[in-house]
Design a protein around this nucleic acid. Sequence first.
DNA 1: AATTTAAGCAACCGCGTACCA
DNA 2: CTGGTACGCGGTTGCTTAAAT
Length: 340
Amino acid sequence: MGRPPCCDKIGVKKGPWTPEEDITLVSYIQQNGPGNWRSVPTNTGLLRCSKSCRLRWTNYLRPGIKRGNFTEQEEKMIIHLQALLGNRWAAIASYLPQRTDNDIKNYWNTHLKKKLDKLHEDTDQETHHHHHGCHSSSSSSYETMYKGQWERRLQTDIHMAKQALCDALSIDNKTINLPVSSSATTSGKSESVILSSNQSTATYASSAENIARLLPDWMKCSKKSPQTSSESIETKQTQSSLITQQLTSPPSEGYDNSVQFGNSNNMIHNNQINNYYSNYSNSDISQSVSPETSRFQDESKPSMENQMPPLSLLEKWLFDEASTQGDLMNISLEESDDFF
DNA sequence: AATTTAAGCAACCGCGTACCA
DNA sequence: CTGGTACGCGGTTGCTTAAAT
């Protein structure tokens, strides 16, 4: 019994996405916007389930995504936020512009958890001179610190409320971020709500711009059959460095799509790509990078730290919050002992 | 140089929630 | 209010690459 599969397995492709599929998906979204995922496979002809399409978009094709090369500040933030919020990666990601929850989650699982474990082990050995660590490997101090789910929720809600208040007070309401409302309800998941239509056009524009930059790279990288996943990974890596580079290095504007595209030695997808590019050039996408990017961030993130400088401020804030809520936590945990 | 093992990461799966008829 | 379903999240898998033997 159980729930029927989200997508019937017959005729539905799984596994890594090919550049062709990406192009198809992106060009469709460029025209129709993200959302209504159910209709995406049928309308595009992609042999993928809607879920897969959405995932591919949100974690990889979506504009403004930075991949790999986590900075020390980002690392710190993730650690702080994880301690604060638990494994609520979407909530954590909302504080890290350009990072996806999946990416953060992966980074945490592969790098940070180990790092913290090690750190914890070391401090453990300092405090208790010698200790054969039978407990230390399984969970970090941060994780064991907060046991109940509801405490985390509470924390998040407070955090989000604070956030929303800050937003409301400092940044005037060009963007409508409502993480509080969503987290204050049952889910606790923090998604900002995209409301205005002109904003969503901005999304498409920046989307287009971003992807447009990726495309030439695909062209260069995919000489052989794109099915081989080793290649697609290679492609991804070059893309990520490309994005990172272009997002970090300031505008330099007129990234010339057509020129780069002209260098392509692969003619297979020219029709699609040309469509693509003409679409983009019709809309006024090819402006400077940063405004588009930040506008996008505004709509999907609480937009605290689009630029790096204020980080120390945020960190301080987080620390403050962590300490004040530490007290709160003690109370909560005591009470929870009574309850459970 | 060949083989084995570990690490990294994209994508999948199942579940909970929101939303709509 | 209820049932159905689309969406988003977090845990997990499985493939690829890198490191170790």
